[in-house]
């Protein structure tokens, strides 16, 4: 890393901007592409370290793509790096969706597009159902009764009792803290 910091910042910005603008398919895909670019391409980060940074990106709340660029930017150039990387990641979807929102109502009133969008609702439902099936199968495979109980209770609370989602997440997070501390104590 012998380049001047300014040049490096620009390179970081363009890299994250480019990755964000052309990555379809969510956070996990963009993390893989980041690894290709920053580890294999630029040799800015060690392979091992990238794995840990990925774990952090997945652990922190918020979009994985955003978290990924923050931790990579921070690792490379500190706070400035993190800010530049976030800006690069957020700008492309921001610009695209701004444009889409301007035309949305006109689009929606068009008969053909209206029908297309309506049909796609069933498609989106199917995509989510499929994702949920895969995720739930992963939880079931663990054969951990506590995890299954959490899944059932969270579903009941959110879907049937209409409890605020934030409360459900807070409760389960606290439960996780308690479980971890408990395991620690019994292990020692």
């Amino acid at each position: 890393m012998k380049e001047k910091n300014g040049a490096l910042l620009w390179k970081l910005f363009f890299s994250t901007f480019y990755l964000s603008a052309f990555t379809f398919g969510g956070g996990y895909v963009i993390i893989t592409l980041m690894k290709k670019k920053f580890v294999d391409g630029y040799h800015w980060i060690e392979e091992e370290e990238m794995l840990d940074l990925t774990a952090i990106a997945q652990s922190a709340p918020g979009p994985i793509a955003v978290n990924g660029s923050i931790v990579v930017g921070y690792k490379l150039l500190g706070l400035r790096g993190a800010l530049v990387a976030v800006l690069g990641t957020v700008l492309p979807p921001f610009l695209i969706i701004s444009l889409v929102s301007v035309f949305y109502s006109a689009f929606r009133e068009n008969y053909v597009i209206g029908q297309l969008l309506e049909g796609m609702q069933a498609g989106v439902g199917a995509v989510i159902a499929s994702v949920v099936y895969d995720m739930a199968a992963g939880v079931v495979k663990e054969k951990n009764p506590a995890s299954l109980a959490i899944m059932a209770a969270a579903f009941g609370a959110a879907c049937l009792l209409e409890v605020n989602v934030v409360l459900v997440i807070l409760a389960c997070g606290l439960l996780g803290v308690a479980r971890t501390l408990w395991n620690r104590r019994t292990r020692v």
Binding site: I128, V132, S147, I150, A154, C159, G173, G176
Partner: peptide, 20 residues
């Protein structure tokens, strides 16, 4: 943190199901 996430994962699945 990993422990917290381990407990959050099943809840997140349930919440996504509910939104679906």
């Amino acid at each position: 943190l990993q422990g917290v996430l381990h407990s959050l994962r099943p809840a997140v699945v349930a919440l996504i199901a509910s939104a679906g």
